[in-house]
Simulated assay, not measured.
Amino acid sequence: MSAGLLRNSFKGAASAAPFFPTLLDQLPNAIVVFEAENQQLIYVNAAAESALDLSRKSLEGQSVHDLFGSNESLNHMIQEIKAGHFSAQRQEMVLHSLPGSIHQDAIPAHVVVASLEDPALIMMEWFPIDQQLRSERDERVSQQVEANKQLMRNLAHEIKNPLGGIRGAAQLLEYELPEKGLREYTQVIIKESDRLQDLVDRLLAPHRKPHAMESFNVHEVLERVRSLVLAEFPKGLKIIRSYDTSLPEILGDREQLIQAVLNIAHNAAQALSSEIREGIAQIELKTRVARSVTISKQRYKMAMDLHVIDNGPGVAEDIRERIFFPLVSGREGGSGLGLTLAQTFVQQHQGFIACESSPGRTDFHIQIPYRRQEKS
């Protein structure tokens, strides 16, 4: 939106706030409008609500400095606009969100402060600098995943046919062997063939006919996952619920989502073996709502944010960029398929999955957009 159009949108006094155009709520960047004199917020768009993880009602009435603390760079920009030295200023800076907000990390952001036609009002817009980088990364990941899926499908089909022949030949050979002791070797061939057949089936399973979609409560999924993990790890592990119970039901495949989250949580529990022995292991299941999100270049009004966070040693640095690739595992004896399947299931819901990991904290982030049920 041009600066002129923005100014016209906010023409009038602060009392006109209830009539601000809803068009600003559709913009992807966070925008707030505040009074120049006391810097008190009178308007917050949906993207700003999402960025600060606070409702519009609780934000309006706060001052800009209540939100971002004593930020000298931001204060200087506001004073320059207020004095009429510039109509708009842009700068990259680090923003800190309101104390008590969930998002309390320092956020490197591109900030724009601009005057409006009414000199009593000032507009501030910001967006994380890494937003564009993430969009480019998501596109690369999507292309890589599609290439991997095609490769694994082709490879699985190429393996499947000769594998059946090997197993059949081993069975026939077993019948012809004169000594029973020699059958031990044919059993090795048969059992290993069966193991490989199971691996091939698991590689092909996500690409077969999709299941019927239904609306369901994501917290029912998380409670199922929680009970399954605690049944296997009953001592030394604490699973914390941090649910936003206001989340609406999501449209998807319940069993696929259970399997996706279970694969992640189960991996986390296995990585927490030392912490479990010490009795300090912790996994957090967290849900939030995200507004005005872009996933694979598609814009959605609202999405479900789901986090699986553990306090384990973190993902090994040498595989951190490849953990969703098939057959890549950070655990000895692991199949390397759990996270690949989780990614496939999430992408089949038009969502994305990402991981941020460092020693002491690993966060698997799933975001799935809310979509309407298609009419049959």
Score class of each variant (00 low, 15 high):
1 M>A: 09
2 S>V: 05
4 G>K: 09
20 F>I: 10
20 F>D: 09
20 F>V: 13
24 L>A: 06
26 Q>P: 07
26 Q>S: 13
27 L>W: 12
28 P>L: 06
28 P>R: 06
32 V>W: 04
33 V>N: 03
33 V>P: 02
34 F>K: 09
34 F>I: 10
38 N>I: 07
45 N>A: 00
50 S>A: 08
51 A>P: 04
51 A>I: 05
56 R>A: 02
63 S>H: 08
68 F>M: 07
71 N>G: 00
71 N>K: 01
73 S>R: 15
75 N>W: 09
75 N>E: 13
77 M>D: 09
78 I>V: 12
78 I>D: 04
79 Q>W: 06
82 K>T: 05
83 A>T: 02
87 S>D: 15
89 Q>V: 10
90 R>C: 12
93 M>K: 02
94 V>Y: 04
97 S>E: 07
103 H>Q: 14
105 D>S: 09
105 D>T: 09
113 V>M: 04
114 A>K: 11
116 L>S: 00
120 A>T: 15
129 I>E: 15
132 Q>A: 14
132 Q>L: 11
133 L>R: 05
134 R>T: 01
134 R>L: 04
136 E>Q: 03
141 V>S: 12
147 A>E: 10
147 A>I: 13
150 Q>F: 14
151 L>V: 12
154 N>E: 12
155 L>Y: 14
157 H>Q: 14
162 P>G: 08
164 G>D: 08
166 I>Q: 06
167 R>G: 01
169 A>G: 13
173 L>H: 02
178 P>K: 00
178 P>E: 00
179 E>V: 08
182 L>D: 15
186 T>H: 02
187 Q>T: 11
188 V>D: 11
189 I>N: 08
191 K>R: 11
192 E>A: 09
200 V>M: 11
200 V>S: 08
206 P>S: 05
207 H>N: 07
207 H>C: 05
211 H>V: 08
212 A>E: 14
217 N>Y: 15
228 L>D: 12
229 V>W: 11
234 P>Y: 12
234 P>D: 08
238 K>R: 11
241 R>S: 10
244 D>W: 05
247 L>D: 07
251 L>D: 01
261 V>S: 01
261 V>D: 00
263 N>W: 07
271 A>K: 13
274 S>D: 15
279 G>N: 06
281 A>M: 03
284 E>Y: 09
295 I>H: 00
295 I>Y: 02
296 S>N: 15
299 R>H: 14
301 K>P: 12
313 P>Q: 11
317 E>M: 05
317 E>L: 07
320 R>G: 06
320 R>D: 05
324 F>C: 00
327 L>M: 13
331 R>A: 14
332 E>K: 13
333 G>T: 03
334 G>I: 02
335 S>D: 11
340 T>F: 15
346 V>Y: 02
350 Q>Y: 11
360 G>D: 04
360 G>E: 02
363 D>Y: 03
366 I>K: 00
370 Y>N: 06
372 R>V: 12
374 E>T: 14
374 E>S: 15
376 S>K: 10
376 S>N: 10
